[in-house]
Design a protein around this nucleic acid. Structure first.
Length: 423
RNA sequence: GGAGAGGUGGCUGAGUGGUUUAAAGCGGCGGUCUUGAAAACCGUUGAGCGUUUGCGCGUUCCGGGGGUUCGAAUCCCUCCCUCUCCGCCA
């Protein structure tokens, strides 16, 4: 959510920011609405002042037992009520209209975000590891090991998967390994959170009101979280934190649910793009000064998972056309998939400034300061577990169809070093 | 699912239609005293919005939203949440 005061102060800068997102200038419309709103507030407040003064006098007269005087005063302000209600209604309506306009505007990009149309214009920042050649895609490798799309289709339809036996355990091993790394070495606090949330939580992180069609909703009105960014970030909703408690770094391994409404025909085979997948999420709540450093730190935390798994990857900075709605700056981690002969997104790490903090009304109080500030938020995958499983299969497959278990995962697999197709 | 009780500031908690401000306590901050600290005592301490160069002035907020009234924390409607008992249940 944007700060209308900031827009009023520098409308040109705001419109320039929208233009970088390929959106029309809107400051004129917003400020016109804001002017009307503030005028309405002034009118309503004047009437409230009159009413309060009159009511006080009536109370005093009644206290003295002077009913005639009280009645005279009441007659005097009889007309006030209607005009006050109208003024309050006008103020309410205008505020709601302004908020509705602001709620659908994306965050302002940082100056260093490169201009571009889509993911093809993203800029490579660094690379790690040597991309290997390979022939088989993960679903070809996985078939013999317990990756079962037919059964999943019978249960739930397209874009679901059933993992059996050693693959199921490998998925669990990956999740546990990631959580342990972030908790033990990077100071994140592990959380177990709901996957069903209310409208307010989805609004706070920016999924609502604009992206309702990307998510699933229950008949009771709950939303299934598309990422635990929603729950982890909203833990500070409507709260005022002490600056000494920042940064708050939290992580969770949850199932994520996405309708994939706009992606028909993309990644239809395999487990790259599913309606349900598990992901380890990393969220930070920080003060206004620490955001950019935290973005670099979090990116490194996510990268470390890939390094320890021995997977080649690259870091790209998203261009203006690819940065998400709530973010000011985003790094994607792309893992090398030999079967696809390509780097594919496996993590996305974003700095949102105070955009979500303002939507959540989440604030902090700096030491020695009386006033409050909105918290700054960051989120990133650390990593998408399903896609990491894909990467392990394609990078560690052997000629006989078996898959070597990366060393760091072996303790999580009971010491097992290899998973083999059934005879 | 049935019945009942509740939601008040950072925390505890009083306040059932009015007479200046949501009492009081705790916690926080400042001060007095002290070599220093503790204790005691004194003072101070909510979040927004509008307006103003500023001091300030005004206004809203007692779970959310509406309503009744000249006037609402207090009365009415509605939604959300918490707790207790019963039922069901991993």
């Amino acid at each position: 959510m944007h700060d209308i005061n900031a827009i009023r102060k520098d409308p040109e800068a705001f419109d320039a920011g929208l233009q970088k997102r390929k959106l029309e200038a809107q400051s004129a419309d917003l400020l016109a609405k804001d002017d009307a709103r503030r005028a309405a507030i002034g009118v309503a407040q004047d009437l409230q002042t009159k009413r309060n003064e009159a009511s006080k006098k009536i109370g005093q007269a009644k206290g003295k037992g002077d009913e005639a005087e009280a009645q005279r005063l009441m007659d005097e302000v009889a007309g006030l009520k209607d005009s006050l209600q109208q003024a309050e209604e006008a103020e309410r309506t205008l505020s709601q209209e302004l908020n509705a306009m602001l709620a659908v505007l994306p965050n302002t990009l940082f100056d260093d975000v490169p201009i571009g149309a889509d993911e093809n214009d993203n800029v490579e920042v660094r690379k790690s590891g040597e991309p290997k050649p390979g022939e088989k895609e993960h679903f070809e490798i996985g078939e013999a090991l317990g990756m079962d799309f037919e059964t999943a289709a019978a249960l739930s339809g397209a874009r679901f998967v059933v993992l059996r036996d050693q693959l199921a355990r490998l998925e669990r091993a990956l999740g546990n390994f990631m959580l342990d790394l972030h908790v033990q070495e990077f100071g994140y606090t592990e959380m177990s959170v709901p996957v069903l949330v209310r409208d307010e939580a989805m609004f706070g992180t920016g999924q609502l009101p604009k992206f309702s069609e990307d998510m699933f909703r229950t008949e009771e009105g709950f939303w299934l979280t598309s990422t635990s960014e929603v729950t982890l970030t909203n833990t500070v909703r409507e709260k005022i934190s002490d600056a000494v408690d920042l940064p708050i770094r939290v992580t969770a391994l949850t199932q994520c649910f996405r309708s994939e409404a706009g992606s028909a025909g993309r990644d239809t085979r395999g487990m790259i793009r599913l309606h349900q997948f598990s992901k380890v999420e990393l969220v930070s709540i920080v003060d206004a000064q620490s955001g950019e450093a935290e973005l670099e730190r979090k990116t490194k935390c996510a990268e470390e998972v890939l390094k320890r798994l021995g997977l080649a990857y690259r870091v790209v900075q998203l261009c203006s056309g690819d940065v998400g709605f709530g973010a000011r700056k985003t790094y994607d981690l792309e893992v090398w998939l030999p079967g696809q002969n390509a780097y594919r997104e496996i993590s996305s790490v974003s700095y949102c400034g105070d955009f979500q903090g303002r939507r959540m009304n989440a604030r902090y109080r700096a030491e020695g300061e009386k006033s409050t500030h909105y918290v700054h938020t960051l989120n990133g995958s650390g990593l998408a577990v399903g896609r990491t499983l894909v990467a392990v299969l394609e990078n560690y497959v052997n000629a006989d169809g078996s898959v070597t278990i990366p060393e760091v995962l072996q303790p999580y697999m009971g010491g097992q070093t290899l998973i083999k197709p059934k005879e």
